[in-house]
Amino acid sequence: MNEPGTVFRESSAEPRTESVPFSHLSLELGHLYMEDFAEGAARLRRHFAAVRPWAEAARAGLGRLPKGRRPRISTCFLVDDYFSRLSTPAELIPPLLEAAAEAGLTIDYLARESGCAVADPDRRDRVELAEAVLDRLVESPPPGSNGFRPPAVRTGWLANGRRTPFQRTSAALDSTGVWQPPSETEARGHSVFLDVELWNGPEDARTWSCAFLASVWQLVRLGLLRDNGAAVLTPTRWQGEEFPAEWDALPPVLQLNPAATPFTAYGTCSVLPSRFLPVEHAVRVILDQVHVAAEALEQVAERSAVEGFTVPAGVVDRTSYVFPPGL
């Protein structure tokens, strides 16, 4: 006879969280729009020439590892094939790789931004990555909030504090009709309030914002996303054939360097043009309010502890950026 409170579950009801390999650092060598590529090879050469010293600084900034450990640093590059497709992989990728090599840089992994929205869209079991991250948003309620505003999963807007109160009555009827400023939660002295748009368009045909897709990109690089326990956007080894004429014929993440260390890493560093600074501020606001599966976090903690490599507890603290002047 079963003891009171005993619960039996099928092992298949709780999918195992798949392990992923980890580098110490995922170093992003750039994220360009199609319009940048349209400027030609000279634009690409200027980009990588400007990136190289900062990429070297990011490598050096990893610091010393425990005795006997060698740094594992993989490089990646994100191509925007989500918001526009002015060129094809066959036309775009070869000059991109040539410009990087000319600057003494190797792109280990090439990723498509559309894969951060929907991974493997042609498969019957396609993974709606952006939707999955949206479902994991846990908004941080600011002090004094009354829950009047609908949640971000309905409005498509996520803030890092308290918005200006919405006046529901006319000034003549509202005895408290005094304007109040927005305020950042846990501000240090003065607020830097930010309200981030996550998507626009109808619910059944959303266009995800650059900031939201960049948040998915960071979580993927950190090895913290799963689909029913399975790893997502795992790299596909490139076999050296000609690049296809259609972006959808290319895997979401392509491993170009067979000798590369793992794509996923304990921490990330992105070397980006300064125009991305407000976008990445928004990314940090989003990452601060994403609930990451405990099992994925535990894997990182256990693996890094075995290596004697310190990983910050907060997900957002595992990301870093460089915005070189003139990039």
Rank of each mutant, 00 (worst) to 15 (best):
T6W: 09
F8W: 12
S11L: 13
E14D: 11
V20W: 00
V20C: 11
G30L: 07
M34A: 14
A50N: 12
V51G: 02
R52A: 15
E56S: 08
A58R: 12
A58G: 05
G61A: 14
L62F: 09
G63Q: 08
L65Q: 08
F83P: 00
R85S: 08
E91S: 13
E98R: 15
E98V: 08
A101G: 13
A101D: 13
A111H: 03
A111F: 02
R112M: 14
G115Y: 03
P121D: 06
R123K: 14
R126C: 09
L129W: 02
A130G: 04
R136M: 07
P142I: 08
G147Y: 09
R149H: 07
R149F: 08
P150G: 11
R154A: 12
N160G: 05
Q167A: 14
R168Q: 10
E186R: 14
A187T: 02
R188S: 13
V192H: 12
E197M: 14
W199R: 02
C210H: 11
S215M: 05
W217C: 03
Q218L: 09
L219S: 01
L233K: 00
R237K: 08
W238N: 05
L250H: 06
V253S: 00
N257A: 11
N257E: 11
A265W: 05
R284A: 12
E307N: 03
A313P: 00
Y321P: 01
